[in-house]
């Protein structure tokens, strides 16, 4: 890849003999809150905040907010026809329409505009999705940009997830207005953001990484007022029966 300086997964073994781990931009805030960290596909992630059972329960009964910045995000930009062709090729023939994302093999294809698509995937698939995009995009004029570090992301899950979002955004998130796979670029907490409804009461909120601490504060504050809380990725997985044990926005 020619622009490795954009990609966290392009880390290599350093002079000290070890490969640097990738970190959430607000790892310091998680540590302040008592987070227990663990490695997850080259990332240092929050496993829990010291009470995994309560965190899982919060996700089942109220709302849990988890930092999912480790999710891979790659943007494809090209003309409308090229974008449609590439997405169809890589997403099992999927046809994207604005307002709806498509999931294919653990990757969400999220249409920002008809000429701009954001692929959101698991951290162990980021490099392969990026390479597949670069290959599919050439020849022709298309840009594939690694944006994993550019977008922070929070998973917000639970029966009160919509109420949590209602404190921060005017997007109509009622099930009939925002069905499963719904995707919307929208203002959240007065900053530019994107919301993906992956399933049921599980949502992924994407935002500029510089706003990570601000968005985290806003959402955890709302969640706590609704008797929810910040949770580690293990709680999301436990509450939603994710067999792999990995919380995924996907």
């Amino acid at each position: 890849m020619s622009f490795e300086f954009l990609a966290p997964d392009a880390a290599a073994t350093g002079p000290n003999g070890s490969r640097p781990l990738a970190h959430s931009q607000i790892e310091w805030a998680h540590l302040d809150a008592g987070a227990n960290m663990r490695e997850h596909h080259g990332w240092n992630v929050v496993a829990d905040y010291g009470d995994p059972a309560r965190e899982a329960d919060a996700c089942r009964s109220a709302v849990g907010v988890a930092d999912a910045s480790f999710l891979g995000k790659i943007e494809l930009e090209s003309d409308r026809d090229a974008v449609a062709r590439i997405v169809a090729e890589l997403a099992g023939g999927a046809v994207l329409e604005l307002g709806r994302a498509v999931r294919h093999e653990e990757t969400w294809w999220c249409p920002i505009t008809v000429e701009r698509v954001l692929a959101v995937t698991q951290p162990d698939r980021t490099a392969s999705v990026r390479e597949a995009l670069e290959e599919a995009a050439s020849p022709g004029f298309a840009s594939v940009t690694e944006l994993t570090a550019a977008h922070g992301s929070n998973l917000v899950a639970g029966p009160l997830a919509r109420e949590c979002f209602a404190r921060a955004t005017a997007l109509d998130m009622r099930p009939k207005a925002f069905p499963e796979s719904g995707f919307a670029p929208v203002s959240v907490a007065r900053t530019p953001g994107m919301i993906l409804r992956s399933e049921g009461d599980r949502f992924l909120h994407l935002f500029g990484a510089g706003y990570a601490q601000y968005n985290w504060t806003v959402f955890v504050d709302s969640a706590e007022h609704l008797r929810g809380r910040a949770v580690g990725i293990d709680a999301i997985a436990a509450s939603h029966g994710d067999a792999s044990g990995v919380a995924a926005g996907a």
Binding site: H23, Q25, I26, E27, W28, A29, L31, A149, R167, A189, R190, T191, G208, A209, G210, Y211, A212, Q213, Y214, T217, V218, D221
Partner: peptide
């Protein structure tokens, strides 16, 4: 409403502290 002001912080904000 809530008194939160949007602010951007660097990835190493913790280190500055």
């Amino acid at each position: 409403g809530r008194p939160f002001e949007p602010a951007k912080r660097s990835a190493i904000h913790g280190r500055h502290r």
